[in-house]
């Protein structure tokens, strides 16, 4: 049984004893980040686009149907490129789910299956995609949303098991890029200072850049991947909030331009 399933089982049978605002008995009010007292766990969990879409919708409704992307998905020259594209396609799947566009979810599901096969993890996702298809038939969008995340995680776990660590980094990067492109496009068209805060991701960018820099040099030096590195660095400088916690409209537009250019390069490579 997967760990998350065991947690769900626990939650199903558990009894809440107490809730309340508090801090742990031994929790200091201030900690020194990076000190030996509490080492930082190295693994990166990148938020899925659905998390930021969920926050964005609380600032007002958005026309998600307009954001559905009908770009043709064609696998590129190598597995690294395919991994980036896989992450992008999964993020587009989340957009299609947000827009409740059944036809597009089906199309992207087929692309996910094709790319997963090319990455050598096709068998691992077949069952997931079947559930997506069944959930679509039932109109159960929550289940579709959950299965897209499970599909993504299944691919990452299977790759990690195959010691394809560099590919897991690229899948995560592709997913982050797809979500960022969409959010920056929405905010560019309908800027809100308060919502611009959602692009305040310099810490996450630092982690993504560190993961990217651990890729073999042979991958990082290829033209497309050099562009990935440049885009990440550019976004990190643009995602800095001002004193009021906002990111300027100009910076939001620049983030969109940078993310869009890289996305186009990945799709057309």
């Amino acid at each position: 049984m997967a760990l998350s399933d065991r947690f769900i089982l626990f939650l199903g049978i558990s009894t809440v004893l107490a809730t309340g605002a508090s801090q742990g008995q031994d929790a200091p009010a201030v900690i020194d980040i990076g000190s030996a007292e509490a080492p930082i766990v190295s693994s990166t969990v990148v938020p899925i686009p659905m998390e930021i879409f969920c926050a964005l919708d609380k600032f007002g409704s958005h026309d998600w149907g307009r954001m559905v992307d009908d770009r043709v998905v064609e696998a590129g020259p190598d597995r690294g490129h395919t991994a980036l594209l896989f992450g992008l396609v999964i993020s587009q799947g989340f957009v299609a789910v947000q827009a409740e566009d059944k036809q597009e979810v089906m199309r992207l599901g087929q692309s996910v299956q094709r790319l997963a096969k090319l990455l050598g993890v096709g068998d691992a996702v077949d069952g997931r995609l079947k559930i997506i298809s069944e959930s679509l038939r039932d109109g159960s969008w929550d289940a579709v949303k959950q299965e897209f995340d499970r599909t993504r995680q299944t691919v990452l776990d299977t790759m990690a098991g195959m010691r394809d660590r560099e590919l897991t980094t690229l899948v995560a990067l592709g997913g982050w890029l797809g979500g960022t492109e969409v959010v920056a496009e929405i905010l560019s068209a309908d800027y809100s200072a308060e919502a611009s805060d959602l692009l305040n991701q310099t810490g996450l960018l630092g982690q993504l850049i560190a993961d990217f820099q651990q890729l073999p040099e042979s991958i990082r030096q290829a033209e497309l991947f050099a562009e990935v590195g440049t885009t990440l660095a550019k976004c990190q400088t643009l995602m800095v909030a001002d004193a009021s916690g906002h990111i300027s409209q100009l910076n939001v537009q620049e983030i969109h331009r940078a993310a869009n250019a890289l996305t186009e390069a990945i799709y057309s490579n």
Binding site: I31, P39, I40, V41, K58, G203
Partner: peptide, 11 residues
């Protein structure tokens, strides 16, 4: 130990 995570306002 410390685990790092990006969180979004409103969520």
């Amino acid at each position: 130990k410390l685990v790092q995570q990006q969180l979004f306002k409103q969520n």
